[in-house]
Every structure is written in C-alpha cells, then in structure tokens.
C-alpha cells in the first residue's frame, strides 16, 4: 500500500472534497499540473490498494435524524472474536467495529461497536440484537454513552508522515 508524492498531493488537494464541476478529476489535475487520466488512474490504484476506502458522500447522520449513539463493548471469547466481530461490523446500525486488547482487571472488553439510532431506545434495541448474535460467546457487556464532546479535530494528513 505504498503511495508516492504525487498520490499524496492528490489526497491533500481533495481533503476538503471533490470540486462540484462536471469534470472534477480534470479540475484536480489542473490544480496540480497533472493529466486528468493520470489523476483518475492514481485514484483508482489507491482505491484498489485500500489507501482510499471509497470515493463517496458522507451523509451527516445527525442531520438525517440519527442523533443517538453509544459505544457498546463486549467481552467475547478470543477463539471466536474475529468471526463474530465481522458479523457485528456488518450490521447496518454499527459504524465502527474493532477488536482491542483488554485492560484487566478494569476493562474486560475486547470488542467495540459504535451503535447509531434515532433515539436511545433504538440504540438499546440494537444492543440487544448484538447480544443475541454473540450468544454464549459473550461473557459480559456494557454500553458507554457520550455526554460531551471535549475536543474534535479532523484527522488531517500529517505533513511529515511518509
């Protein structure tokens, strides 16, 4: 998944989004003094290698009514955690889903799944669905609701990162 300086320039240029013009890739190429064909080919390659996950619209889920969310956490048997994690991650109300190390004795949970819904009740109902899916492989669980955003900065491309 290696990218070169030109790839990096394309990513930096489109960080704020694609231009809303009939030929957005030509426009990006114009900014960077590159060929349109080259820009499209490079984006294609980065998408295939996974550097770019997708080129798409990100709806604002708050604006669309999905205003409740909770970080559900699960203590799942390590022998089946990858299989079950993939199933939880595929649920349409789960956005982020990860396996992480436990921090015993304070924190017995290894599977994290962010649940979204229009209200707290729906989030809790979704949580029950996950509980059912995990079954006996899950020893205990919890859900952490956020009460305040204390800081939020965008994940920017870091200049020096290579």
């Amino acid at each position: 998944m290696s990218i070169d300086q030109t790839d990096r320039r394309i990513l930096t240029a489109t960080e704020g989004g694609l231009p809303l013009s009939p030929t957005p890739y030509a426009e990006v190429a114009g900014w960077l003094d590159l060929d349109e064909v080259d820009v499209i080919a490079r984006l294609q390659r980065m998408q295939e290698s996974g550097v770019i996950r997708r080129i798409a619209i990100a709806p604002n889920h708050y604006a669309l009514g999905m205003v409740a969310n909770g970080m559900s956490v699960w203590d799942v048997d390590d022998t089946v955690s990858e299989t079950l994690g993939a199933q939880v991650g595929a649920l349409d109300f789960v956005s982020h889903c990860y396996l992480r190390p436990r921090a015993l004795p304070d924190w017995p949970y290894n599977l994290f799944a962010m649940i979204h819904g229009p209200d707290r009740e729906t989030v809790e109902a979704h949580r029950d669905e996950i509980k059912t899916l995990l079954g006996a492989a899950c020893r205990q669980s919890d859900i952490l609701y956020s009460t305040r955003i204390l800081k939020k900065t965008g994940m920017r491309l870091r200049k020096g990162a290579q």
Partner: peptide
C-alpha cells in the same frame, strides 16, 4: 445534510 464528498482515506495507510 452532507459532511463530506470525496475520497475517504484509510488514515493508517497514510502512515
């Protein structure tokens, strides 16, 4: 209604 429209990077893949 949209937060962003464009390429979404894998942050870790960027180094």
């Amino acid at each position: 209604a949209i937060t962003r429209f464009g390429p979404f990077m894998d942050a870790a893949a960027m180094g």
